[in-house]
């Protein structure tokens, strides 16, 4: 399986993602944002970081990068695209997934492990995964997911909520919401579910001695689903 990770000026989780993808069998290529095309890929990843220094709005500048035209075409033709953290912010700015990510409710940069509940397994990202709850890491200042009431209804009707913040048993309540996101939303799909945007970083949970292994579960499952 082939993957491409797009590096924008200010991306800083691109190499972590490269390490994670390679560890679980992807042949990964790093692609510079100013290139027009990426190599033929089964998966395209927009990594975390602070693209363009978060100027204007997080992800807004990167969403207009040269490479994004190809990424948008790839996504619109059913290609599997994943945006993590700043990558999620870039995805919402392109309009590929609905909503926006606002400043965290309590104005703090949050850096900690969280539990997320998988809300929908009828898709390439979570199909066949045994766990219902995963422990991932979050590190963000703007992860407060917001959308209009109409958008929320549409997202829920189409089962586009991918993961919600919860406790270790999968209880998704306000007290387990780290950043003020509507309905504890931590990640969403597009309508067709070939695009996933999420704030948590699975690539930081791929080594039991450093962190945890729930990212390993995620990547192992993802590559098997793509085969």
């Amino acid at each position: 399986m082939k993957s491409s990770v797009i590096t924008f000026p200010g991306s800083n989780c691109d190499r972590d993602m490269d390490v994670a993808l390679k560890k679980f069998g992807f042949k990964n290529k790093m692609v510079w944002h100013n290139d027009a095309e990426f190599p033929k890929s089964d998966l395209v990843v927009l990594p975390g970081g602070f693209s363009y220094g978060d100027y204007l709005r997080c992800g807004s500048m990167a969403s207009k990068s040269k490479i994004m035209k190809s990424v948008i075409n790839f996504a619109n033709s059913g290609g599997i695209v994943m945006g993590i953290c700043n990558g999620f912010q870039i995805l919402v700015e392109t309009g590929l997934v609905p909503g926006v990510l606002l400043r965290n409710k309590y104005l703090e940069f949050i850096c900690k492990n969280v539990f997320v509940k998988i809300n929908n397994k009828q898709n390439t990202f979570f199909k066949n995964i045994d766990n219902n709850v995963l422990e991932f890491h979050i590190a963000h200042n703007e992860g407060n997911y917001f959308c209009t009431k109409d958008q929320l209804k549409e997202i829920e009707d189409n089962e586009q909520v991918a993961i919600n913040y919860c406790d270790k048993d999968g209880k998704s309540e306000e007290q387990f919401n780290p950043n003020g996101s509507i309905k504890n939303i931590a990640g969403i799909f597009n309508k067709k579910k070939n695009i996933l945007g999420m704030m948590p970083h699975p690539e930081r949970m791929i080594d039991p001695s450093l962190s945890g292994e729930d990212g390993s579960l995620f990547f192992n499952n993802l590559i098997n689903n793509l085969k």
Binding site: L56, G99, V100, L102, Q151
Partner: peptide
């Protein structure tokens, strides 16, 4: 197209 995000 850029300066405002019309969702918010």
């Amino acid at each position: 197209k850029l300066l405002a995000n019309l969702v918010i």
